[in-house]
């Protein structure tokens, strides 16, 4: 299969606001425009990758991701994942994935109690087999922006040990040229992204779709997304 044959679906909730950005990013890499799927849909056309984009689904009311996690479309996404389908949740998408239990842990308010938009360093970790990490070099940190208020990854110590032991930690925050604190939000064990136990679902706080070109100030987002897409093709 070639990259342009890859079927990517991006779920759109009321309040999603990175759906278009992700669509543009994927199209830049695959030359094929992803499908945008409205949350009221109850089914999902066959997809090689489902992306839950960033934003403020349902205004973050009740709790970030809580209402979106119970939208009609999420049953279809759960089915897709249960069949071994690949799912990527970015920022609010990560929050939604934790709400549905597709990835472990929860995301609570940043330790500084402030929204934070800036570049962070991102260290790929040694993981179980996963299309999202297979192509990354362990020694090579990425620089990708974050923009969130509730990105403080939390799980109890036993669960963190278990996640780490299983190789489910995909990324940890690392130092970057951008300066500022290494861990931008107080995340347990500097965790920035986690995988499901089968490695097919990834949730991460940083926004790769905002680091797609020199004009964005960096291309590490494109690099990460391309590696993931290539792994899904092969």
């Amino acid at each position: 299969m070639t990259l342009s044959a890859l079927r990517v679906a991006i779920i759109v909730f009321p309040g999603s606001n990175c759906d278009r950005d992700m669509m543009v990013a994927i199209e830049q890499l695959t030359s094929r425009r992803p499908a945008l799927v409205w949350h009221k849909e109850a089914s999902l056309d066959a997809a090689d990758l489902v992306i839950i984009p960033g934003g403020f689904s349902f205004g973050d009311y009740l709790r970030c991701g809580a209402l979106a996690g119970r939208s009609p479309i999420m049953n279809a996404v759960l089915d897709h994942a249960a069949r071994g389908g690949a799912v990527m949740g970015i920022c609010n998408g990560f929050q939604i994935l934790t709400e549905t239990g597709m990835v472990p842990g929860v995301l609570i308010r940043n330790a500084g109690l402030k929204f934070s938009c800036r570049n962070v360093g991102l260290r790929p970790c040694e993981t179980l087999a996963s299309p999202f990490t297979a192509g990354l070099d362990l020694g090579e940190d990425l620089t990708i922006p974050i923009a969130h208020n509730e990105g403080n990854y939390f799980a109890d110590a036993d669960e963190l040990d278990r996640i780490e032991g299983n190789g489910q930690v995909a990324f940890r925050y690392a130092a970057s040229d951008a300066g500022g604190p290494v861990n931008p939000n107080g995340a347990s064990r500097d965790i920035a992204g986690v995988l499901s136990s089968n490695g097919r679902v990834l949730g991460m706080m940083p926004h790769p779709e905002r680091a797609m070109s020199k004009l964005h100030g960096g291309t590490d987002g494109a690099k990460f997304l391309l590696k993931s897409l290539e792994a899904l093709v092969s």
């Binding site: 606001n17 278009r20 990013a25 938009c117 779709e209 964005h216």
Partner: peptide, 25 residues
């Protein structure tokens, strides 16, 4: 102040806060 603002959503910000003028593609 400005790191509490999302200056990048829409992915067309070329120069955000801190420059002489902001630049959006």
């Amino acid at each position: 102040i400005y790191e509490q603002y999302d200056s990048q959503v829409m992915a067309d910000t070329i120069a955000g806060p801190g420059g002489d003028a902001a630049l959006v593609r």
